[in-house]
């Protein structure tokens, strides 16, 4: 699983799709984290249909990744929590109206981005979580089914038999570095650990997508199954407005991926869009948004993709060996293309 993205790059052939409008136009634009090119292509297809709406494109693109279980870190059947259950986080944002819908810790429903959209469309709330989010989804017509697969069950069993390593507990007894739970608080509380002992790259991918239409309207979304072996109930950065993604029509959009527990405190997506509003270029905005995270947690790994309303795009990353790969489609590029940016 760790290398599926690499295989994706190797196998990547230019994917020609039917392009609308003038071929030299930078808009519409689809950009998403990682070389999840099928998602990019799916979103592009929606934009190519004359009446294609950017919001629908985000849902379709992210939905494609959910169905295909991109890297095992998006959709069902991946990242089992301590109890072996897969739970999903997703959000969607309309940069015209600033409306947001998101779900966290969603259980037994596969289409997390669809449920996020339903939260936006059918409630006055913004974020629903846990069993209650499942109940809402079922009421809205989504199918309730197990998110476990043979692969996720095997992953969980392997983790259990390997003394539950790694896990996300600290300052508890028995020592979480060597033992499974149940855990009780230990009397000492050490200073917060640096991120050095945290997970590798195969454990924190998220698809985050930004779509800009020809009228510079910006929409964004994310969907993920979070961290392998997370503490049950954990919500990461993906469904948090401004952390996982942000969109502001006429300005731009951004989406983040990486070590969500750390990244959510720094609102990199909101930060990047704010900086675009102040006139920074896409690349500079991405870099400046990532800088404070790297400063506080030098060993964290993560990335942000940024697009402005004119169709300029860029990315920045930290701590990813071999750089960060992301996928883009515009009429100018003429195909879905994977770009790489070197990390700081």
């Amino acid at each position: 699983m760790a290398t599926s993205w690499q295989r994706g790059v190797c196998l990547l052939l230019p994917i020609f799709v039917s392009w609308v409008n003038t071929k030299s136009s930078p808009l519409p634009l689809v950009i998403n984290t990682w070389p999840f090119t099928n998602a990019t292509e799916k979103a592009w297809e929606v934009m190519s249909e004359g009446s294609g709406k950017a919001l629908d494109a985000v849902v379709a693109g992210c939905g494609q990744c959910q169905t295909q279980q991109c890297d095992g870190t998006v959709g069902y059947g991946g990242s089992p929590d301590e109890t072996g259950e897969t739970t999903l986080d997703a959000m969607i944002m309309n940069g015209d109206t600033f409306e947001v819908g998101s779900v966290g810790d969603l259980r037994r429903v596969k289409d997390a981005i669809g449920v996020a959209r339903a939260v936006m469309d059918y409630t006055q709330h913004t974020l629903l979580a846990g069993e209650a989010a499942t109940r809402f989804a079922v009421d809205m017509g989504f199918k309730e089914e197990s998110l476990s697969t043979n692969s996720s069950v095997q992953m969980w069993k392997g983790w259990k038999s390997g003394h539950c390593q790694p896990n996300y507990r600290k300052n508890v007894s028995p020592d979480p570095k060597t033992h499974c739970g149940p855990y009780k608080p230990s009397s000492n509380v050490e200073e917060r650990q640096r991120a050095s002992d945290r997970v590798g790259r195969d454990n924190h991918d998220t698809i985050g997508m930004v779509v800009v239409d020809i009228n510079s309207r910006v929409m964004a979304g994310t969907t993920t199954n979070g961290m392998n072996h997370k503490v049950p109930g954990r919500i990461g950065d993906s469904p948090i407005v401004g952390a996982g993604a942000y969109a502001s029509s006429g300005v731009g959009g951004a989406a983040a991926t990486g070590d969500g527990d750390i990244m959510m405190r720094f609102l990199p997506a909101f930060h990047a869009v704010t900086l675009l509003g102040q006139g920074l270029t896409v690349t500079k905005a991405a870099q400046v948004a990532m800088a404070p995270i790297a400063k506080a947690y030098p060993t964290f790994s993560g990335a942000v993709v940024v697009a402005d309303a004119k169709g300029n795009f860029g990315a920045a990353c930290h701590g990813l060996q071999g750089g960060f790969h992301y996928s883009v489609a515009t009429p100018q590029i003429g195909q879905v293309k994977v770009y790489v940016v070197d990390c700081t």
Binding site: R169, R192, P232, I240, M264
Partner: peptide, 17 residues
């Protein structure tokens, strides 16, 4: 904050924790 490496726990998971 002090006894997990996560930032947010929710619903039943939060109560169990």
């Amino acid at each position: 904050m002090e006894r997990s490496k996560h930032s947010m726990l929710t619903a039943q998971g939060a109560q169990d924790f």
